[in-house]
Design a protein around this nucleic acid. Sequence first.
DNA 1: CTCGGTGCAAACTGTTTGCAGTAAA
DNA 2: TTTACTGCAAACAGTTTGCACCGAG
Lengths: 132, 132
Amino acid sequence: MATLKYSRQREVIKEYLASTKEHPTADTVYLHVRKTFPKISLGTVYRNLNLLADTGEALKITTPDGGVRFDATTTPHYHVLCCKCGCVQDLDMKPIDTLDEQAQQCYNGIIRSHSVLFNGICSQCSKELSTH
Amino acid sequence: MATLKYSRQREVIKEYLASTKEHPTADTVYLHVRKTFPKISLGTVYRNLNLLADTGEALKITTPDGGVRFDATTTPHYHVLCCKCGCVQDLDMKPIDTLDEQAQQCYNGIIRSHSVLFNGICSQCSKELSTH
DNA sequence: CTCGGTGCAAACTGTTTGCAGTAAA
DNA sequence: TTTACTGCAAACAGTTTGCACCGAG
């Protein structure tokens, strides 16, 4: 892998990613970053997001609807997908470290890690539901 | 939802899906189904796969690389994604039904269900690894 | 000077859709 | 006859890539 060179664009993307608790799509990142960097191109955003994912500075997560989202929190954690608004939130729950071992008992190959996605309704949307 | 009408194409797709233990992509389904139904179009395959997913006769699963796969096994179960060959296999392990409750403790909104994807190496690929 | 990064636009991939014709009910 | 389903091709969305220029080291 070639040595990285500093770039103002990448820095802005990292800052934005670290500042938000949402899990923005590439497009959302583009829209926000463009506020402070109007001439940035979507291609550059994609290139840098993938770069950050490769170097482990960000996480690339895919939702069941096929959407790709980025997450600056790289320590293992689970996610909740809201089936109303489609938002993805972090779940403040300790990952089950014995899960891999359990799975290994039932599997011929090698288990390395796992990811869990919960489906549900975020607090915002469930509030709106109850007011109807 | 409109009432379904019988279609030979849909039947062939269902048969193929039920016959395989792999989790084929739409394209793989298309390739196989075309053997017995040469004039079927890719659009029809997509329409029917989505239809089956909607009626609950098949499961639509997305892998972290963004690929979409279909699974005729609709009872809850976990999956293993092989990071070598990219195949997706069923894991013969009882789903953890307390997981949703655990997650609910840590979450403001509503948790309904969850899915788990294990990352690892399938038995086929791990065999090939050890012979090098 | 060298080589990684950028903006832009074109290309590409996987999927959906509009249409006119076909076939199940 | 009615209306869902089909094949086809065009359209579409999200993402990647080739290129000429820019800028960090």
